[in-house]
Amino acid sequence: MHAFQYVAPTSLAAARELLKDAISVPTRVLAGGTDLLVQMRAGLHSPARLLDIKKIPETNVLCIEAGQARIGAAVCAARIGEHDALRRLCPGVAEAIALIGSVQVQGRATVVGNLCNASPAADSVPALMAAGASIRVIGPDRERWLPVAGFAVAPGRTLLAPDELIVELRLPVPDAHTAEAYQRFTPRAEMDIAVVGVGARLTLDRDGCCRAAEVAIGAVAPTALPAPEVVAAILGARIDEAALTRAAAAAKSVGNPISDKRGTADFRRHIAGVLTRRVLRTAAERARQRSL
């Protein structure tokens, strides 16, 4: 690995100070490092500076307040898995995050890192998109909020400017008629990269008809995609076998999957359909349970 300067500011202000020359001193943000360090060792990035954000208090926030779940950029996946309220209220996001890597990786990897790595197969992203999550981005002297949907623009590339970093991620906590689910498909039971991942959040009305829904699918395009065609197939309908079959059929046309070492394009399309059916069934079941 190339040599670089390592800095670990202890406040947001200090981090902003460091971001000021982040263009002239190419900087990468280090949180869990489970993707970054591997990629640096493989020679994919050679930053002049690593900015470790783990010592900044704001990046370590993990709580639910005012109808929002707040997840700091340095919060590791394992902490999220241990947060009972979050697991109960946002099971789709929680189960997606729980799938990131092994137990060892869970102790380091962060959700925001999963976003920034911008892999089309990132497990958390479809779930976060379906949940309507957004991120707080800061630069040397500016700040903005961005939705997770659309944040990744290509494999490994995001909307983040070279002198920006993410402080935290927020998502609205679902109401009592809304529930979510995430599933992915991998050849091995664990320690594997999603061939396809599907996240969904849906709201049922009193009659069990779908009042609102968001569905997103990972690994069928260069970035995870929202799937409005799947939503259209179920909106206003009861989530029964017929609706699920329509949704699965719609899911197969989402994106433009490729054939690679992890699966063929046809296989991915097929699995997108299978998982969409399974995820919607689970989400609808959870929504029914919640409204009881």
């Binding site: 489970t34 591997v38 060792r41 060892q104 990786v105 102790g107 380091r108």
Partner: peptide, 27 residues
């Protein structure tokens, strides 16, 4: 492996199981 995929380097950091190959020494 050096890439976090085998667990041979497992250590416990602040009570959490971690791959030592995925942590910088300075951290």
């Amino acid at each position: 492996c050096g890439t976090g995929d085998c667990g041979a380097c497992s250590v416990i950091v602040n009570g959490r199981l971690t791959c030592a190959c995925l942590v910088l020494a300075v951290e």
